[in-house]
Computed example of a mutant assay.
Amino acid sequence: MQTHKKYTPTLAEEMALFEQGYSFIAGLDEAGRGCLAGPVVAGAVILPRSEDTMQLFAGVNDSKQLSAAARERYYEHIMQHALTVGVGIGSVEVIDTRNILQATKYAMELALKQLSPAPDALLLDALYLPRVSLPQRSIIKGDSRSLSIAAASIIAKVTRDRLMVELHQQHPEYGFEQHKGYGTPAHLTALRTHGATPHHRRSFSPVSELYGLFATTDN
């Protein structure tokens, strides 16, 4: 039986870049790439460079490994103690026009622009930003291995979940508050019953198949 190796985020990747002379290392990650509705959201985080950084951010991990309550707690902690935090949003329109990968990179570029001080090197979870002229390291399972990327994953996930809760208030019949736009059976049933909202990704199957069967809701 094959087992999957579990990682605990560390500062090893950040320290390697510090030793090369870089000072401000930004970790980046996204949330919502696989959803049928809502934007894709990117987080960018630069953690403080100090001897107690690991201790200060103890417990921070890949957002998928944490409960919703834990993500909320760590979100507030990261916002308070990180050196700087940025958030970028790739709207449904950008997703449908450019595709989800390009929308993700666009959101990350927006998040980077919010960082002050600006980063001089990047750590990403299995992505590369060709339009950003900074040294970059793309790390497989980066959100489980780099503390900066893990922190960014929490910022992205909590921000996006809050946006989906707001959309739930506008369209309660879709259950966005529960599934956050992912293609759950309940979400698919709501799509078949009510059609697509302006917040659904027309370029994504099965929305693309259902879109021709229903008029778009106005609100």
Rank of each mutant, 00 (worst) to 15 (best):
P48F: 04
Q136M: 05
F204D: 02
P48K: 08
R49K: 07
I78W: 06
G88Q: 12
L213Y: 13
E13Y: 15
Y128P: 13
E72I: 15
E109C: 05
D62E: 02
A68S: 14
D120C: 06
A69S: 13
L124K: 00
T53V: 12
S203D: 05
G38F: 02
L83A: 10
R131Y: 11
R73L: 14
L110F: 05
R160I: 00
Q136V: 11
T193P: 04
R131T: 15
E76R: 15
A215W: 09
L110H: 05
L11Y: 11
H194V: 10
E72M: 13
P172V: 01
L11M: 11
P135N: 01
E209L: 13
T184Y: 00
S205V: 11
M1Y: 14
N99Q: 11
V60D: 01
K180I: 01
Q114L: 10
L36C: 00
A44G: 06
R162N: 10
I154G: 01
P119W: 05
E177Q: 08
G38A: 04
I139T: 07
D125Y: 01
S50K: 14
Y128L: 06
F204M: 14
K64A: 02
E177T: 01
T193M: 09
G21S: 06
D120W: 09
E109H: 08
Q2A: 13
G212R: 07
S203N: 14
P185M: 10
T184C: 02
F24V: 11
I78Y: 08
D143M: 06
K141Y: 08
Y74D: 10
F176A: 08
A68V: 10
A69W: 12
Y7I: 08
Y7R: 03
K157L: 01
P172N: 09
Y106R: 03
V41A: 05
L122R: 07
I154E: 00
V207M: 00
H199W: 07
S144C: 03
T217I: 03
H179S: 04
Q178C: 09
A151E: 02
L167N: 00
